[in-house]
C-alpha cells in the first residue's frame, strides 16, 4: 500500500459520495447516465466475488463492501426512487457495443482460463469503458451540472492515481500487472478531454458546456 493507492481509493470513494449527495439533495438524477452506473455495479460485482473467500485486510474488505453498497444504492436511486427525473432518451448509449467486445476480450486475453480470473479480467476491461455512456450523454446534452463534473473529475483522478501506484510498485517491488495497467491507461485517456474542459472551465467558475 502506498500514498498513490490510498489517494486513489479516497478519490474513488469521494466520487461515489459526491454522486449520491447530488442525487439525494437535488432529488434528481438529471444528467446522470444510469447505464454507466449499472456498468459500475457490474464491475464491482464481478471483481469483488473474492470478498467472502479470501480475506486480504480489514481495509480491503470494508472498501469493497462500501463500493458495492454505493454502486447499488446509486442504481436504485436512478431507476427506483427518482426514476421520474431520469433522462432516459439522452442516456442512449448501446451497452451491447461495450459488453460484447469486453466479454470477448476477457475470454481471449486473460492470465488463466478460470471463472474467477475471467470475471476479474472482465471487470477490469469493463471498468475502462464504463464511463463512456456518461461522457456520451454529456456530449449529447452539451452540458453538465457542476457537481456532476466534480464527480467525473474524482472518478477520472482515481485511476490516474492508480497508474502512479503501479509505477511506484514496479520500481519498489517489481510488481507489474499488464492487464490492469493497459486498461487503466485506456480508462484514463477517455477522461483527458473532460479533464481539459474541467480545468479550463469549471475551475474558473464557468459552467461546463461543450462547444
Amino acid at each position: 500500500m502506498n500514498v498513490f493507492r490510498i489517494l486513489g481509493d479516497v478519490s474513488h470513494l469521494l466520487a461515489m459520495v459526491i454522486l449520491l449527495v447530488k442525487i439525494w439533495r437535488s432529488k434528481s438524477c438529471a444528467g446522470i447516465s444510469g447505464k454507466s452506473q449499472i456498468l459500475f455495479a457490474l464491475v464491482f460485482t464481478s471483481r469483488y466475488l473474492d470478498l467472502l473467500t479470501n480475506f486480504i485486510s480489514i481495509y480491503n474488505t470494508v472498501m469493497k463492501v462500501v463500493f458495492l453498497l454505493c454502486a447499488y444504492v446509486t442504481v436504485y436511486l436512478i431507476y427506483g426512487k427518482f426514476r421520474k427525473t431520469f433522462d432516459s432518451e439522452n442516456d442512449s448509449f448501446r451497452l451491447e457495443f461495450l459488453l460484447v467486445p469486453v466479454i470477448g476480450l476477457s475470454f481471449l486475453e486473460n492470465y488463466s482460463f478460470t471463472p474467477t480470473e475471467i470475471l476479474w479480467t472482465f471487470s477490469i476491461y469493463l471498468e475502462s469503458v464504463a464511463i463512456l455512456p456518461q461522457l456520451f450523454m454529456i456530449s449529447k446534452t452539451g452540458e453538465a451540472e457542476t457537481i456532476t463534473t466534480h464527480y467525473l473529475f474524482f472518478l477520472g483522478l482515481y485511476r490516474a492515481l492508480y497508474l502512479a501506484n503501479w509505477i511506484w510498485r514496479y520500481h519498489t517491488e517489481n510488481f507489474y500487472d499488464q492487464i490492469a495497467v493497459v486498461s487503466g491507461v485506456v480508462q484514463t485517456i477517455f477522461y483527458c478531454d473532460f479533464f481539459y474542459l474541467y480545468i479550463t472551465k469549471v475551475l474558473k467558475g464557468k459552467k461546463l458546456s461543450l462547444p
Binding site: N54, S57, M63, Y176, I179
Partner: peptide, 10 residues
C-alpha cells in the same frame, strides 16, 4: 511477473 499479482487492489 503477473504471478506476483495479488488481488490486494480495489
Amino acid at each position: 511477473q503477473h504471478l506476483l499479482r495479488t488481488k490486494d487492489e480495489l
